[in-house]
Amino acid sequence: MKILVVDDEKDVQILFLQRFRKEIKKGELDFVFAFSGEEALGTLRSMKQEAVLILSDINMPGMSGLQLLEIIKKDFVAPPPIVMMVTAYGDEENFNTAKALGADDFLTKPVDFKLLKEKLIQQT
């Protein structure tokens, strides 16, 4: 299963690759990275019909994570990807908006990687 991580912070890539080093090595998880909502949509379009889990930041310049979520839930239906939202502001409003837009899960920064690992393994 591919996991698409969307964040405008480029160091997220290195961090994820190291955090999930063992899982990647064992071939349990496969990470793809995009650094903006727009880039994420492009990546999604190029990955036809693959089961995907999307982990997206909300606060990004340009297309926000919530906008991306809305488009994904509208345009990518077969098969519907699992979308988990990550934001620095763990507030009600973003949580509710993300839920309303159909987010499958919700994480707040700083990300608890142990929890995330469990969740990811659960999904796969």
């Binding site: 912070e9 160091d11 961090l15 080093r21 620095a88 920064k109 700083p110 990300v111 990687f113």
Partner: peptide, 24 residues
């Protein structure tokens, strides 16, 4: 706050992961 939170998260995460890496 937002701008500081991000680098702080990286500092925390990278040091944590480095700790794990040393064990490995």
């Amino acid at each position: 706050a937002h701008e500081i939170q991000n680098p702080l998260n990286f500092v925390n995460n990278f040091s944590e992961v480095s700790n794990e890496l040393i064990d490995e």
